[in-house]
Amino acid sequence: MKQYFSIAASAACLALSMSASVAYAAADRGTEPEAQEMVKKAVALIKSAGPEKAYKVFTEHPDGAFKDRDLYVFVYDFDGNCLAQGANPKMIGKNLIALKDGDGNAFIKGEIDLVKKSGKGWYGPYKFTNPNSQGYELKKSYCERGAGDTMVCVGTYVK
Score class of each variant (00 low, 15 high):
T31F: 08
V39M: 06
S141D: 00
M151K: 05
A35L: 04
I7S: 12
Y76K: 01
F5N: 05
D101V: 03
I97T: 04
Q36I: 14
K41I: 06
Y72N: 07
F66Y: 06
Y55F: 11
M151Y: 06
Y126F: 02
F74Y: 05
F74C: 00
G102Y: 06
R69I: 08
A44V: 04
K116D: 08
L96M: 06
A8E: 15
N88W: 12
Y136W: 07
G64Q: 11
Y76G: 00
Y157W: 02
E111S: 10
T59V: 11
Y55H: 05
A12P: 06
K90Q: 13
I7R: 14
N88P: 10
P125Q: 00
M151R: 05
K109S: 15
S10W: 13
E137C: 15
K47P: 02
K100C: 06
D101N: 06
A12L: 14
A42M: 00
L14E: 03
G155Y: 02
L71K: 08
R29T: 09
E137F: 14
K139R: 09
I46E: 01
V39N: 03
V39A: 04
D101P: 05
G104S: 08
K116G: 07
F66A: 01
V57K: 01
T59L: 07
P33I: 13
N81Q: 09
D113I: 13
A15T: 15
A87I: 09
H61Y: 07
K90M: 10
T59W: 04
E111K: 06
D28F: 12
K139F: 01
S48I: 02
N130P: 00
E37K: 13
K109F: 10
S10T: 13
E34I: 15
G64T: 13
G102M: 04
A84G: 08
G135T: 05
Y4S: 08
G30W: 09
N132C: 09
C82Q: 08
V57F: 02
K67L: 10
I46F: 00
E37V: 09
A147K: 02
A11F: 15
T150L: 12
N105K: 14
A26G: 07
G102N: 07
N105Q: 14
T129G: 00
M38R: 05
N88H: 14
C153L: 13
M151T: 07
N132H: 04
G110A: 12
G135C: 03
I97R: 08
L83H: 09
E111C: 08
K47Q: 13
D103E: 13
L71H: 09
P62T: 07
S141A: 06
E34P: 15
T59K: 10
L45V: 11
Y123A: 00
A106E: 14
G119T: 01
N95I: 03
A98N: 13
S17L: 15
K140G: 07
Q3E: 15
G148M: 05
K159T: 08
L96P: 01
M91K: 03
A35C: 02
L99H: 08
S6L: 15
Y157T: 03
Q3N: 10
F5K: 09
T129Y: 04
L114Y: 06
D101L: 05
R69M: 12
D113F: 13
M1C: 05
P125K: 00
V22I: 12
K100G: 02
K41A: 11
M151A: 11
G50Q: 00
N88K: 13
F66N: 01
D70A: 04
T31M: 10
E137K: 15
W122M: 06
Y24S: 12
T31S: 15
A84Y: 08
K159A: 10
